[in-house]
């Protein structure tokens, strides 16, 4: 079998294993929907942010929760699964077969990206059904490109953090610490327009803010344009490239425990 056929086959096995692991499936799909409901209940889905002409709460939290969910499906999942597989010796065993290493990695990454796309469909449909959030059909090319760049970059960052995490026991703490504070300052959990300028400056260093802002623009029914936010995409992609470089230096196949 060619390397490409092997990695497609690997996606199938990854997928089968993923859905049989209740915890991973639960966190990836149930959490975003739960946040969606909580935020809409807390802030009133149809009330407007920033006055009568502003965005509805549901229009804000649909792309915000998608940002959160895509990062969980890619960055968090990859980091957890790679450190877990590394400490269990799964990676080492894989390394002892003729399967090309890139085919194994590609299988994992493609699976995570597919999960991310599925999650976008679910959250978008959920928003449309229950909170009459409009679907950005007119900006579909921009949405697909944004998701592709972001999910690929966050997978690369997941590999990078997996290389920096000492062992699987410490992975949840380190991974959550690297994401959770940024979610609060990146237009994901909280609308940042009222926040002090300096904290906006800080959040704009990191890729989560740019991903959230790009999705926010794509979902925003009050703006015009095709939805390609090239500046945001460039920052996300730059982080992705850094992720690849760090991963190449820190990745190991053998357990570190």
């Amino acid at each position: 079998m060619s390397g490409l056929a092997l990695s497609i086959r690997q996606v199938g096995y990854e997928n089968r294993a993923f859905w049989r692991n209740p915890i991973a499936a639960f966190f990836t799909f149930f959490f975003p929907l739960m946040f969606m409901i909580i935020f809409n209940v807390l802030f009133g889905g149809t009330s407007r942010i920033g006055g009568a002409s502003g965005l509805r709460v549901a229009d804000f939290y649909t792309p915000a929760v998608i940002t959160f969910g895509v990062i969980t499906a890619t960055y968090t999942n990859i980091a957890m699964m790679i450190t877990g597989a590394r400490d269990l010796g799964i990676l080492k065993r894989m390394r002892g077969t003729p399967l090309p290493p890139w085919a194994f990695m590609a299988g994992r990454i493609v699976h995570s990206v597919l999960l991310a796309f599925l999650l976008v469909v679910i959250v978008a449909a959920f928003g449309a059904l229950f909170y009459s959030v409009h679907l950005p059909w007119d900006r579909l090319p921009a949405l697909i490109l944004t998701l592709a760049i972001a999910s690929g970059s966050f997978c690369a960052l997941g590999l990078a953090i997996a290389g920096l995490v000492p062992n699987a026991d410490s992975a949840p703490a380190i991974v959550q610490f690297s994401v959770l504070p940024l979610n609060f300052i990146s237009n994901v959990f909280v609308d940042m327009r009222g926040a002090p300028a300096w904290i906006n400056t800080v959040s704009e260093i990191f890729p989560i803010r740019h991903f959230a802002d790009a999705l926010m623009g794509i979902w925003n029914p009050l703006t015009s344009g095709s939805g390609f936010y090239w500046g945001d995409l460039a920052v996300i992609a730059a982080w992705g490239v850094c992720g690849v470089l760090v991963a190449m230096r820190t990745f190991t196949w053998e357990p570190r425990a």
Binding site: R9, R16, A17, L88, R93
Partner: peptide, 29 residues
């Protein structure tokens, strides 16, 4: 790598797959 088989001292397997699935997965390599 195609002509040798390795049993390591300690190594894990994909926990959520069945015995037949993992053997088939590895056989495919």
């Amino acid at each position: 790598m195609s002509r040798m088989g390795i049993v390591l001292q300690q190594s894990g397997v994909q926990q959520y797959l069945t015995v037949r699935e993992v053997v088939a997965m590895y056989a495919g390599y």
